[in-house]
Write a protein that binds this DNA or RNA. Structure first.
Lengths: 95, 95
DNA sequence: TATGAGTGCTACATAAAGCGTAGCAAATGG
DNA sequence: CCATTTGCTACGCTTTATGTAGCACTCATA
């Protein structure tokens, strides 16, 4: 389960999530990720590119064919996320 | 997609993954997670418990009913992980 | 040629998070 | 009383992330 160590890193799921629909430029992607520092974003993108999950095309960064499988999984994660937000015990105060 | 910020943290997916089958004690879970430092493990478990995703039963930590939905998703992540390991471009040397 | 806006990406100092080890308090069993 | 196991914390140190600034490059317009 080596992929857990990859996508388990901070911002990884978020990055892949933001790239799910359309390609995004470095700066646009950064903006979508709450302005994550470019240092980290670059590190993550480098790892994703080395893993063959993301590539830099003419219109920006986009998931590769190899990454597409995640496209079926992430929506389920969204679904589950919605269920969780409805049924979770104490919303408490998270920002 | 607040859940991404939760499970996107380091060790989160791994922790949930290790709890998928049977309950694990704090120490056992720690052992399975490459002996992650107890400080972090405790932080993560606290977050998971506050989110109502994990609880501490008689036999150790275990996912709650609310968390079970992930049980259908994580195996797919495994599947995808296996595909990825077969088809990825350059295994290179990652440790 | 130049100027301006966009791109990917890097440098730097500071802040935050994680790590490894040791150990505590409580519960359990001899 | 002692040993074992439990969940969990404290400590000092290393690693990682943050935020801001800016570089080198490309493209379009003038």
């Amino acid at each position: 389960m080596a992929v857990l160590e990859l996508v388990g890193q901070k911002w990884m799921l978020r990055i892949l999530w933001e790239l799910r629909d359309a390609p995004l430029t470095f700066r646009a992607l950064r903006a979508r990720c709450d302005n994550v520092s470019p240092t980290v974003l670059n590190q993550r993108l480098a790892a994703l590119r080395e893993a063959g999950l993301v590539e830099l095309g003419d219109e920006g960064y986009e998931p590769t064919e190899l990454c597409r499988g995640l496209g079926d999984i992430l929506p389920q994660l969204t679904d589950w996320s919605r269920r969780w937000e409805k049924e979770r015990p104490a919303p408490a105060d998270e920002d």
